[in-house]
Computed example of a mutant assay.
Amino acid sequence: MRELNAVSLFFRLALAMISGGLLGLERGRKRRPAGCRTYMLVCLGAALTMLLGQYESIALDLHWSSLAESIGQRTDVSRFSAQVVNGIGFLGAGTILVTGRQEVKGLTTAAGLWASACMGLAIGAGFYECVILCVLLIFLCMRFLPVIENMLIERARFINIYVEFHSLDNIGTIINRIKEQGAQICDVDISRTGAEGSKNPSAVFSIRLEHKQPHTRILTAIAELDSIYTIDEF
Protein backbone atom coordinates (compact mmCIF):
# COMPACT_ATOMS: atom_id res chain seq x y z
CA MET A 1 0.00 0.00 0.00
CA ARG A 2 3.02 2.30 0.23
CA GLU A 3 3.81 1.89 -3.47
CA LEU A 4 2.44 4.20 -6.15
CA ASN A 5 -0.13 1.98 -7.89
CA ALA A 6 -3.85 2.16 -8.66
CA VAL A 7 -4.93 0.42 -5.44
CA SER A 8 -2.68 2.60 -3.32
CA LEU A 9 -3.90 5.78 -5.04
CA PHE A 10 -7.55 4.94 -4.46
CA PHE A 11 -6.93 3.94 -0.86
CA ARG A 12 -5.01 7.12 -0.04
CA LEU A 13 -7.48 9.48 -1.70
CA ALA A 14 -10.51 7.72 -0.23
CA LEU A 15 -8.93 7.69 3.22
CA ALA A 16 -8.18 11.42 2.94
CA MET A 17 -11.77 12.18 1.94
CA ILE A 18 -13.26 10.05 4.73
CA SER A 19 -10.88 11.40 7.37
CA GLY A 20 -11.54 15.00 6.41
CA GLY A 21 -15.28 14.33 6.24
CA LEU A 22 -15.38 12.89 9.75
CA LEU A 23 -13.66 15.97 11.16
CA GLY A 24 -15.90 18.29 9.16
CA LEU A 25 -19.03 16.42 10.19
CA GLU A 26 -18.37 17.23 13.83
CA ARG A 27 -17.90 20.91 12.99
CA GLY A 28 -20.96 20.91 10.76
CA ARG A 29 -23.18 19.51 13.51
CA LYS A 30 -22.12 22.46 15.66
CA ARG A 31 -23.02 24.80 12.79
CA ARG A 32 -19.48 26.08 12.31
CA PRO A 33 -18.66 27.77 8.98
CA ALA A 34 -16.30 25.05 7.70
CA GLY A 35 -18.34 21.88 7.40
CA CYS A 36 -18.05 18.37 6.04
CA ARG A 37 -17.49 19.17 2.35
CA THR A 38 -14.92 21.88 3.07
CA TYR A 39 -12.82 19.54 5.20
CA MET A 40 -13.16 16.78 2.60
CA LEU A 41 -11.97 18.95 -0.29
CA VAL A 42 -9.03 20.41 1.62
CA CYS A 43 -7.84 17.00 2.86
CA LEU A 44 -8.32 15.48 -0.59
CA GLY A 45 -6.41 18.31 -2.28
CA ALA A 46 -3.55 17.99 0.21
CA ALA A 47 -3.34 14.22 -0.40
CA LEU A 48 -3.32 14.79 -4.16
CA THR A 49 -0.50 17.33 -3.83
CA MET A 50 1.59 14.87 -1.81
CA LEU A 51 0.97 12.08 -4.34
CA LEU A 52 1.93 14.44 -7.15
CA GLY A 53 5.24 15.17 -5.43
CA GLN A 54 5.97 11.46 -5.15
CA TYR A 55 5.02 10.91 -8.79
CA GLU A 56 7.31 13.72 -9.97
CA SER A 57 10.19 12.35 -7.94
CA ILE A 58 9.77 8.84 -9.39
CA ALA A 59 9.28 10.16 -12.92
CA LEU A 60 12.43 12.28 -12.68
CA ASP A 61 14.46 9.24 -11.62
CA LEU A 62 13.01 6.91 -14.27
CA HIS A 63 11.17 8.40 -17.25
CA TRP A 64 12.86 11.79 -17.28
CA SER A 65 16.32 10.65 -16.14
CA SER A 66 17.94 11.01 -19.58
CA LEU A 67 16.55 14.51 -19.94
CA ALA A 68 17.84 15.47 -16.50
CA GLU A 69 21.30 14.15 -17.38
CA SER A 70 21.38 16.10 -20.63
CA ILE A 71 20.55 19.32 -18.79
CA GLY A 72 23.35 18.67 -16.39
CA GLN A 73 21.63 19.66 -13.19
CA ARG A 74 18.85 18.39 -10.97
CA THR A 75 15.78 20.62 -10.81
CA ASP A 76 13.31 20.48 -7.96
CA VAL A 77 10.07 20.31 -9.97
CA SER A 78 7.95 20.48 -6.84
CA ARG A 79 8.78 24.18 -6.51
CA PHE A 80 6.49 25.01 -9.43
CA SER A 81 3.61 23.17 -7.78
CA ALA A 82 4.23 24.98 -4.49
CA GLN A 83 3.87 28.37 -6.17
CA VAL A 84 0.51 27.41 -7.69
CA VAL A 85 -0.81 25.99 -4.41
CA ASN A 86 0.17 29.18 -2.58
CA GLY A 87 -1.13 31.49 -5.28
CA ILE A 88 -4.56 29.89 -5.57
CA GLY A 89 -5.10 30.70 -1.88
CA PHE A 90 -5.52 34.38 -2.72
CA LEU A 91 -8.16 33.57 -5.33
CA GLY A 92 -10.01 31.31 -2.90
CA ALA A 93 -9.93 33.95 -0.18
CA GLY A 94 -11.79 36.31 -2.50
CA THR A 95 -14.78 33.95 -2.60
CA ILE A 96 -15.22 33.93 1.20
CA LEU A 97 -17.76 36.46 2.45
CA VAL A 98 -19.24 37.37 5.84
CA THR A 99 -22.87 38.44 5.45
CA GLY A 100 -24.73 40.97 7.55
CA ARG A 101 -26.15 38.06 9.53
CA GLN A 102 -22.63 37.05 10.60
CA GLU A 103 -22.86 34.04 8.29
CA VAL A 104 -19.69 32.89 6.54
CA LYS A 105 -20.21 31.85 2.91
CA GLY A 106 -17.89 30.64 0.20
CA LEU A 107 -15.63 28.30 2.17
CA THR A 108 -16.65 25.24 0.18
CA THR A 109 -16.19 27.17 -3.09
CA ALA A 110 -12.70 28.23 -2.00
CA ALA A 111 -11.83 24.64 -1.05
CA GLY A 112 -13.14 23.44 -4.43
CA LEU A 113 -10.97 25.99 -6.26
CA TRP A 114 -7.91 24.83 -4.36
CA ALA A 115 -8.65 21.17 -5.07
CA SER A 116 -9.17 22.01 -8.76
CA ALA A 117 -5.77 23.73 -8.86
CA CYS A 118 -4.19 20.59 -7.41
CA MET A 119 -5.88 18.51 -10.11
CA GLY A 120 -4.59 20.89 -12.79
CA LEU A 121 -1.06 20.34 -11.55
CA ALA A 122 -1.53 16.57 -11.69
CA ILE A 123 -2.92 16.78 -15.24
CA GLY A 124 0.03 18.91 -16.33
CA ALA A 125 2.43 16.35 -14.90
CA GLY A 126 0.63 13.49 -16.69
CA PHE A 127 -0.57 11.81 -13.49
CA TYR A 128 -3.82 10.76 -15.15
CA GLU A 129 -4.72 7.80 -12.94
CA CYS A 130 -4.77 9.92 -9.81
CA VAL A 131 -6.70 12.71 -11.53
CA ILE A 132 -9.50 10.38 -12.64
CA LEU A 133 -9.91 8.97 -9.13
CA CYS A 134 -9.82 12.44 -7.61
CA VAL A 135 -12.45 13.79 -10.02
CA LEU A 136 -14.81 10.92 -9.15
CA LEU A 137 -14.38 11.46 -5.40
CA ILE A 138 -14.86 15.22 -5.64
CA PHE A 139 -17.96 14.72 -7.80
CA LEU A 140 -19.44 12.37 -5.20
CA CYS A 141 -18.59 14.89 -2.49
CA MET A 142 -20.21 17.84 -4.28
CA ARG A 143 -23.21 16.05 -5.79
CA PHE A 144 -24.51 13.59 -3.18
CA LEU A 145 -23.04 14.70 0.14
CA PRO A 146 -25.19 17.87 0.59
CA VAL A 147 -28.33 15.73 0.91
CA ILE A 148 -26.80 13.60 3.66
CA GLU A 149 -25.22 16.62 5.32
CA ASN A 150 -28.54 18.48 5.45
CA MET A 151 -30.26 15.48 7.03
CA LEU A 152 -27.65 15.35 9.78
CA ILE A 153 -27.71 19.11 10.36
CA GLU A 154 -31.51 19.12 10.70
CA ARG A 155 -31.15 16.73 13.63
CA ALA A 156 -28.22 18.59 15.19
CA ARG A 157 -28.52 20.10 18.65
CA PHE A 158 -26.61 23.26 17.68
CA ILE A 159 -28.42 25.90 15.64
CA ASN A 160 -27.83 29.54 14.71
CA ILE A 161 -30.81 31.88 14.51
CA TYR A 162 -30.97 35.39 13.06
CA VAL A 163 -33.73 37.59 14.52
CA GLU A 164 -34.92 41.15 13.78
CA PHE A 165 -37.17 42.74 16.39
CA HIS A 166 -38.83 46.01 17.42
CA SER A 167 -36.35 47.40 19.96
CA LEU A 168 -33.44 46.34 22.14
CA ASP A 169 -35.83 46.12 25.09
CA ASN A 170 -37.22 42.93 23.54
CA ILE A 171 -33.97 40.98 23.99
CA GLY A 172 -34.95 39.70 27.43
CA THR A 173 -38.30 38.43 26.14
CA ILE A 174 -36.65 36.57 23.27
CA ILE A 175 -34.07 34.98 25.57
CA ASN A 176 -36.79 33.83 27.97
CA ARG A 177 -38.79 32.30 25.09
CA ILE A 178 -35.71 30.39 23.90
CA LYS A 179 -35.07 29.01 27.39
CA GLU A 180 -38.70 27.96 27.70
CA GLN A 181 -38.12 25.59 24.74
CA GLY A 182 -35.45 23.69 26.66
CA ALA A 183 -32.53 25.36 24.86
CA GLN A 184 -29.27 26.81 26.10
CA ILE A 185 -27.92 30.06 24.62
CA CYS A 186 -24.20 29.69 23.91
CA ASP A 187 -23.59 33.10 22.35
CA VAL A 188 -25.48 36.26 21.36
CA ASP A 189 -24.33 38.90 18.87
CA ILE A 190 -26.56 42.00 19.05
CA SER A 191 -26.59 44.81 16.48
CA ARG A 192 -28.53 48.09 16.39
CA THR A 193 -29.25 47.54 12.69
CA GLY A 194 -30.31 44.54 10.68
CA ALA A 195 -28.84 42.86 7.64
CA GLU A 196 -29.25 44.20 4.11
CA GLY A 197 -29.84 47.79 5.21
CA SER A 198 -32.67 47.10 7.67
CA LYS A 199 -33.09 49.74 10.40
CA ASN A 200 -34.50 47.25 12.90
CA PRO A 201 -32.19 45.96 15.66
CA SER A 202 -31.10 42.38 15.19
CA ALA A 203 -29.34 39.54 16.99
CA VAL A 204 -27.68 36.25 16.13
CA PHE A 205 -28.26 33.49 18.69
CA SER A 206 -26.07 30.40 18.90
CA ILE A 207 -28.25 27.81 20.62
CA ARG A 208 -27.75 24.30 21.95
CA LEU A 209 -30.86 22.15 22.31
CA GLU A 210 -31.01 20.00 25.43
CA HIS A 211 -32.60 17.16 23.46
CA LYS A 212 -33.17 16.40 19.79
CA GLN A 213 -36.23 18.15 18.44
CA PRO A 214 -37.35 19.70 15.14
CA HIS A 215 -35.73 23.09 14.66
CA THR A 216 -39.02 24.48 13.40
CA ARG A 217 -40.44 24.11 16.90
CA ILE A 218 -38.14 26.68 18.47
CA LEU A 219 -38.39 28.95 15.41
CA THR A 220 -42.18 28.92 15.62
CA ALA A 221 -42.10 29.68 19.34
CA ILE A 222 -39.92 32.76 18.80
CA ALA A 223 -41.91 33.91 15.77
CA GLU A 224 -45.11 33.98 17.89
CA LEU A 225 -43.76 37.00 19.79
CA ASP A 226 -45.36 40.25 18.65
CA SER A 227 -42.03 42.09 18.60
CA ILE A 228 -40.44 39.79 15.97
CA TYR A 229 -40.10 41.08 12.40
CA THR A 230 -37.79 38.49 10.85
CA ILE A 231 -36.44 35.12 11.96
CA ASP A 232 -34.21 32.76 10.02
CA GLU A 233 -32.00 29.76 10.72
CA PHE A 234 -28.59 29.41 9.05
Rank of each mutant, 00 (worst) to 15 (best):
W114E: 10
C186Q: 10
V188R: 05
D226N: 10
A34D: 11
S116D: 05
S227N: 06
R12G: 11
M40Q: 05
G28Y: 09
S198P: 15
A183C: 14
A14I: 12
L107H: 04
E180L: 14
F10H: 10
A221H: 03
I178M: 09
R157K: 12
V77I: 14
V42T: 08
I174C: 05
K199D: 03
I175L: 08
G92F: 00
S70W: 10
G112F: 07
C118E: 08
V104M: 10
E69V: 02
E233V: 08
G28F: 08
S227P: 01
E164S: 09
D232C: 09
V85K: 04
V135P: 12
I18A: 03
S57I: 07
A46Y: 07
V7E: 06
E129D: 06
I148Q: 12
T173F: 04
M17Y: 06
F139P: 14
I218V: 00
F205Q: 06
L23I: 14
H63I: 00
S116F: 08
H63Y: 12
M1A: 13
G28A: 10
Y39Q: 11
L209P: 07
E69Q: 02
V204R: 05
L107W: 02
G126K: 06
G124Y: 09
L219N: 09
G182Y: 05
G100H: 06
D232V: 10
G126I: 14
F90W: 02
M40P: 15
S227V: 09
G100Y: 01
N5W: 04
I138Q: 10
C130N: 04
L67I: 02
L9F: 04
M151P: 00
K105T: 03
A93Q: 02
L4T: 00
L225G: 02
A47E: 07
V85D: 02
W64K: 14
R157L: 11
P214K: 14
F90Y: 03
W114A: 11
H211C: 07
L225Y: 01
G112D: 01
Q102H: 13
I148H: 13
E154F: 15
F11Y: 13
R32T: 05
E103H: 15
G182S: 11
I88N: 01
P214Q: 13
L152F: 15
Y162N: 15
L107V: 04
D226E: 09
A221Q: 13
R27K: 14
G120R: 03
S57F: 14
L152M: 15
F90V: 15
L22A: 04
C134M: 05
S202E: 06
F80P: 02
N5D: 12
S19K: 07
T99K: 12
C134N: 09
W114L: 12
A14G: 13
K212T: 13
N5S: 08
L97G: 06
E103F: 01
S206Q: 07
V163A: 07
F158Q: 12
C36Y: 05
A125R: 11
H215D: 08
G20L: 01
N86T: 14
L15T: 11
F205D: 06
G182K: 13
V7I: 00
A122C: 07
G197K: 09
L60E: 15
G72H: 08
L209M: 11
V147E: 02
A14Q: 08
L62F: 04
C36W: 05
Q213F: 01
G21C: 00
G92I: 04
M1F: 12
C118R: 05
G21M: 00
Y39F: 12
F90L: 04
V77L: 15
C130W: 00
G106K: 10
